[in-house]
């Protein structure tokens, strides 16, 4: 096991280098740069644009730019964000934790609800519950997230006034400790509910499909034949096996805890990393974007190693080689 992890970590070094080159190239080759995005300023002159490019190092050849960026990264320096005019690490740190707490809450509810709905749908396949759940899942899945977000805001924030209209803290408040936590939690309810509802559908389908597959197996029939209670059969024998393939899905979702949800963050005015990075792309703030992408890449690679390890632990038949 340890050997496996060490080998995988070693393997990830070339992967990371490869990924960083590709990511860097893609971004560097995308048309326009930070200076072009400023060209709407009617006073911008060619000379000034050239001067700015030189200041930002955008005038150097690509390999040189990559090396200076990559050596900075190795030293833990991701450069300065052009948009925020401060170190990228600081920008990411300002926003990523806001996305993270949102992500954790969503993931928790998503898996909780999806497992319940999925398992129940599978046990009662083609029942009324199953049909209604299926339809609901696809209704939610077929509408863009901003619609659900807008409905939530309209109903619960504007009309009923139960929850605040977006944001993360009460404007002008100086809460600390418990009061602060309650304040943030209050602001989290609507975005968490929206994203949970949207993402729960797909996951519950995986639960349902895997459960259906497992229930039909002979060992379940055997378990039933042995006279075990239905509850024991489902939860003890069937569920554990049905969960196996979902380990991959779960670990793949882990990096996205840090990735932020662009549209929802915008609608709910949540100060998350998603919308910051989106803006960074549009105005070609390449240090910010590269820094963020590399962070997610590292997390993804780690999550994949974790996925394989967990899979080996959960299913002893799989040998880690």
């Amino acid at each position: 096991m340890t050997q496996f992890i060490i080998r995988r970590l070693l393997q990830s070094i070339p992967t990371l280098i490869g990924a960083s080159i590709i990511i860097f190239l893609i971004f560097a080759m995308a048309p326009g740069d930070y200076v072009t995005s400023q060209l709407q300023n009617p006073k911008m002159t060619e000379e000034r644009a050239a001067q700015l490019r030189a200041l930002y190092g955008l005038d150097k050849p690509l390999p040189q730019r990559y090396i200076s960026w990559a050596s900075g990264v190795l030293k833990g320096d991701l450069g300065d964000s052009l948009l925020f005019k401060k170190p990228v690490i600081q920008v990411i740190n300002d926003f990523i934790w806001n996305s993270f707490i949102l992500g954790v809450a969503i993931m928790f509810f998503e898996w909780l609800i999806a497992s319940i709905v999925g398992i129940y749908s599978a046990v009662r396949q083609y029942s009324v519950f199953d049909t209604i759940a299926t339809l609901l899942v696809f209704i939610l899945y077929s509408l863009p997230s901003f619609f659900l977000g807008l409905v939530m805001l309209k109903v619960f924030a504007v009309d009923l006034k139960w929850f605040p209209l977006g944001g993360m803290i009460t404007t002008g408040s100086n809460y600390t400790g418990w009061a602060h936590i309650v304040d943030v939690a209050k602001h989290m309810v609507l975005p968490v509910a929206t994203l949970t509802l949207i993402s729960v559908g797909g996951l519950s389908r995986y639960f349902r499909a895997n459960m259906l597959e497992v229930i039909k197996q002979d060992y379940i029939r055997t378990a039933r034949a042995k006279g075990l209670k239905e509850r024991t059969v489902i939860f003890k024998h069937a569920l554990r096996n049905a969960l196996l393939p979902l380990i991959t899905l779960f670990t793949l979702e882990l990096p996205s805890l840090f990735a932020g949800a662009m549209i929802t963050e915008r609608i709910f005015n949540w100060p998350g990393i998603g919308k910051v990075v989106l803006e960074g792309i549009y105005i070609r703030d390449y240090p910010l974007f590269l820094g963020y992408t590399m962070l997610i890449t590292v997390l993804t690679i780690l999550a994949n190693i974790l996925a394989d390890v967990l899979y080996g632990v959960a299913d002893p038949r799989v040998r880690l080689k």
Partner: peptide, 17 residues
């Protein structure tokens, strides 16, 4: 590993490019 790289690739800039 190829999958890792593709998974990590930033969607929007690729599409823009």
């Amino acid at each position: 590993r190829l999958a890792d790289i593709i998974y990590a690739m930033p969607g929007l800039p690729i599409l823009i490019m």
